[in-house]
Structure formats: structure tokens, C-alpha cells
């Protein structure tokens, strides 16, 4: 890539929007994932009884929906990011590319 084109892309508002949006959203979801997973581990490490508590009168404990919930959360946040990236970010990328190759 030539330096002139590089500077043009870097100065393109579409590029700056793409970069800052993706960075912010990526970090936001990363932090959400870290909080959920290490929160789960911390509950187990510091208060085992909490997740061993039964729901209602059966043997099923709160640990089951929480554990399965962490798995579902993992899948859902990934899907949210990918869907947004495949529409919004890819549109922005296309615009940046069009500008750059003009």
C-alpha cells in the first residue's frame, strides 16, 4: 500500500468511525464475557453453597440454569457481534474501500 493512500484512508471519517466503533463494541463485549465467566468462577470459589441451593422442592439446583446460562450467553454474545460486524462494519468497510480506490 502506498503512503499517500494510507494517509487518505486513515483520514477518512468512515475509517475512523469503523475503527472506533468496532474497538469500543469489541471491548464492551469482551468485558461482559470476562465479568460473566470470572463472576461464575468467583461464586464457586467463594460461596459453593450458593449454586448448590435447590430451586423449589426438586433436586435441581441454581447451578444448573446458571451453568447452562453461561454457555448460552457465550453463544449469544458471539452471535450479536458477528451479526453487527457482518452488516454495519462491513458496510463501513466497503465505503472506506470505495473512497480509497477512487
Amino acid at each position: 500500500m502506498q503512503d499517500s493512500m494510507l494517509e487518505r484512508i486513515a483520514a477518512d471519517p468512515n475509517y475512523q468511525e469503523l475503527r472506533s466503533k468496532r474497538l469500543r463494541f469489541g471491548w464492551l463485549l469482551t468485558i461482559a464475557m470476562l465479568v460473566v465467566y470470572y463472576g461464575f468462577i468467583a461464586i464457586i470459589a467463594f460461596d459453593k453453597a450458593l449454586l448448590a441451593k435447590r430451586i423449589g422442592s426438586g433436586v435441581t439446583t441454581w447451578g444448573i440454569p446458571v451453568g447452562f446460562g453461561v454457555i448460552l450467553f457465550t453463544i449469544v454474545v458471539t452471535a450479536i457481534y458477528v451479526m453487527r460486524a457482518n452488516s454495519e462494519y462491513d458496510d463501513l468497510t466497503e465505503r472506506v474501500k470505495r473512497e480509497a480506490l477512487k
Binding site: M33, V70, I71, T78
Partner: peptide, 15 residues
């Protein structure tokens, strides 16, 4: 708990 640990790296890799 063990298997969840193997799953949670994927979103980080994605994001």
C-alpha cells in the same frame, strides 16, 4: 464448570 472453561475463549477470539 470444566467444560465451560473451554468455551469462553471463543468470544474473546471473535471480538
Amino acid at each position: 464448570i470444566y467444560s465451560i472453561g473451554f468455551l469462553v475463549g471463543w468470544p474473546i477470539l471473535t471480538f
